[in-house]
């Protein structure tokens, strides 16, 4: 049986609910639009009450276990729902003792996926690049995992006195913050203003600093690539032309994520195509 659900975490919990009610094992999960299959499909409707009951059940078995499940839902783990489902079943049947063992077969893939996501979050705390668009700070990112909810607290604290937004191009989520309040919403396409004179000036200064600070006798692109993988560079000021919005706005949105014209500073390859 394939389970079709709305792609939300609540929806996933409802799948768990249905599988227990119907005493069956879903062999795969799919979202609302993407289900083409020869297997029978069960369409799971998201019902808050069902989700809440499963959530409470999970917490009763293990609070850290319930937290891991919620967090791993944000990751880009392969076969995410199946693995989450196996994890939930194990929690219900055995409780949370197996969480002590990170090499546990069911737990390990989730732990690894969360570590991968945490790594991305840590990197992005540094790699996010804001531009000043007439007093509002704006940034774009292209993460593999759905990291905006995890970056939210950090940037709301750091930039508490600003108004800012961060756009996740991969998942098309927009984080907005102003006057002490923030929210995340889905936005299919984001058009950026052209940068003002002062903004361009700061970009020049930063690019210059970035190039100057490297010691040429120690050049080490391998080390640089390990610590700052190329996939991040497509949204970082030091690797973009100072007027990158102009290039971007000129290209149709489908190809808009790649910057074919981006000139990279001395010796550093142009940013790789995202994804």
């Amino acid at each position: 049986m394939i389970y079709q659900y709305d792609g939300s975490y609540e929806g996933f919990l409802c799948c768990v609910y249905e599988s227990y009610i119907n005493k069956e094992f879903p062999i795969a999960f799919c979202g609302d639009e993407e289900c083409f299959s020869l297997y029978p499909v069960r369409c799971v409707i998201t019902i808050s009450d069902h989700a809440r009951r499963v959530q409470r059940g999970l917490e009763k078995m293990s609070i850290p276990g319930a937290q891991i499940l919620r967090r791993v839902f944000l990751t880009c783990m392969e076969d995410k729902e199946q693995r989450m489902y196996a994890f939930a079943r194990k929690l219900f049947s055995q409780g949370g003792t197996f969480l002590k063992n990170q090499s546990d077969e069911v737990y390990h893939p989730l732990a690894a996926a969360i570590r991968h996501m945490n790594g991305e979050v840590e990197k992005l705390k540094g790699f996010v690049r804001f531009s000043d668009y007439g007093g509002v700070l704006g940034a774009e990112i292209e993460p593999k995992n759905r990291v905006l909810p995890l970056l939210r607290g950090y940037f709301c604290n750091r930039c508490a006195n600003e108004a800012f937004f961060i756009y996740d191009r991969t998942h098309r989520d927009l984080l907005l913050y102003a006057n002490g309040r923030s929210r995340i919403m889905r936005v299919d396409q984001l058009q950026l203003d052209l940068p003002g004179e002062e903004e361009v000036h700061y970009r020049e200064l930063w690019k210059r600093f970035y190039e100057t600070i490297a010691i040429k006798e120690r050049l080490n692109p391998r080390c640089q690539d390990i610590r700052m993988p190329k996939r991040y560079r497509g949204t970082m000021t030091e690797f973009l032309p100072t007027d990158h919005e102009r290039h971007r706005n000129a290209i149709p949105p489908a190809a808009g994520a790649a910057f074919p014209g981006s000139a990279a500073p001395g010796g550093i390859p142009a940013p790789a195509k995202p994804r």
């Binding site: 705390k125 540094g126 790699f127 490297a214 391998r222 640089q224 610590r227």
Partner: peptide
Amino acid sequence: GNTSSSLMGCCHSFSADGR
């Protein structure tokens, strides 16, 4: 602003020498 809570501090970029 604030100061970072992580043990290593926050890396904002890596120069061509990998630092």
